[in-house]
Computed example of a mutant assay.
Amino acid sequence: MYLLIMLINFLILFLMVFMSVAFFTLLERKILGYIQLRKGPNKFFIKGIFQPMGDGLKLFFKEVNYPNNLNFLMFLFSPMFSLFISIIFWLIYPFLGFNYIMNFGLIFMFCCSSFMVYIFLLISWSSNSNYSVLGMIRFISQMISYEVSMMLIIMNMLFMINSFNLNNFCIYQINIKFFFFFFFFFFFFMFIMLLISFLAEMNRSPFDFSEGESELVSGFNIEFSSMSFIFIFLSEYMSIMFMGMLLFEMFFGLMMYKFYLNLMILLFMFFVIWLRGFLPRFRYDKLMYLIWKLILPLTLFMFMFNFSLKLFNLYH
């Protein structure tokens, strides 16, 4: 019975995530439309509400083009792997109550995040395209660089709660009577650095260098169309929502208050779209300068500082 309830929880969660991705695309097109002084999708039913369904059907029935000399099996299955990894990210999120708690959830998240590098390497390599390989080189170097700082920042936070369980961020902040506020205000600069790392990790503006249309056409996924493109597309947008959940759970502790957590995820989605609407793309060398000469040294300093406090038992 317990396994059945847990399975139903996961199925409902994954269904809700898939539906959220569909309407996330509509929200993005609407917001970008109003930023650019146009209406966006507004013809398909009331206010264009069924536009995601139309886009999905269009992509589903689109013709599939296969490049010459491609690695067919990797070309076919690597987008599915990327979607699968993005789905199992959500296993660390307890849906209906705390009937499933992953005690090493953040370690599990680190492993899945690192594995995504190999998936995108396979996606670009299998299509046998020079543009795809150039986009892959940019994307992987960017992803690995910001993953280092992301993991160190999260490790800094773990010194406070003495656990790899995501739920303990909520429990800790409730126990010290600073619910909603403690980590956000006392680690505000780490919040900003983690937000920047997430944007670079998700390949979103202003750090979307692997998809520089003026240089690389569409980056690592240039040769993919139809269902393969849907899988890559879903993977990217599911990762955005997951990173928003992780960010606000760590710094606000909202796991036991799902309505407020979902509201914060929606706010994060709006923020990501808003950044795409008004910020230009950085230069690539500026991106690497930001991580290796600014964020990473600050993160390492904070890591050594928190480790020293922990070593001398100054955290209770």
Rank of each mutant, 00 (worst) to 15 (best):
I35Q: 09
K43Q: 10
G105E: 06
K62T: 00
M74W: 11
F159D: 01
V21I: 06
N99W: 00
S228Q: 11
L246E: 04
F186C: 08
L263G: 11
K39S: 09
F220Q: 12
G212F: 05
C170D: 11
L91S: 04
L26W: 15
N68A: 00
N69A: 13
I295C: 09
E236H: 10
M302H: 11
F115A: 13
I107G: 12
F182K: 10
F270V: 13
Y257H: 07
M288A: 02
Y66N: 03
F179Y: 15
L314G: 06
I196T: 08
F209Q: 04
Q51G: 13
S124T: 14
S205H: 10
T299Q: 14
M256S: 12
F209T: 05
F14W: 09
N99L: 10
N103H: 11
M227A: 13
I8E: 14
F248N: 05
H316F: 11
M143N: 03
N128I: 00
N71F: 11
I232H: 01
F305T: 08
N156Y: 05
F188W: 14
P67V: 05
F209M: 01
I171D: 14
F50W: 06
L266D: 01
I295Y: 08
M202C: 08
F45P: 06
S129W: 00
L267C: 13
I222G: 13
N65L: 14
G253R: 11
S163R: 05
P297V: 05
S78T: 08
L37D: 10
S149Q: 06
K47T: 01
Y237C: 05
R138T: 14
P79Y: 02
L134D: 12
L11C: 15
R138Y: 03
N68F: 08
E28G: 12
F45W: 07
I101A: 14
T299R: 03
N313R: 03
S228A: 13
P280E: 02
S145F: 03
G97P: 02
F180M: 13
F60S: 07
F185S: 07
F120V: 14
L37N: 14
L254G: 09
N71Y: 09
L266F: 15
F270A: 06
L279I: 08
I87R: 01
M1R: 08
E223H: 04
F189R: 06
K258F: 02
I35M: 08
S129K: 06
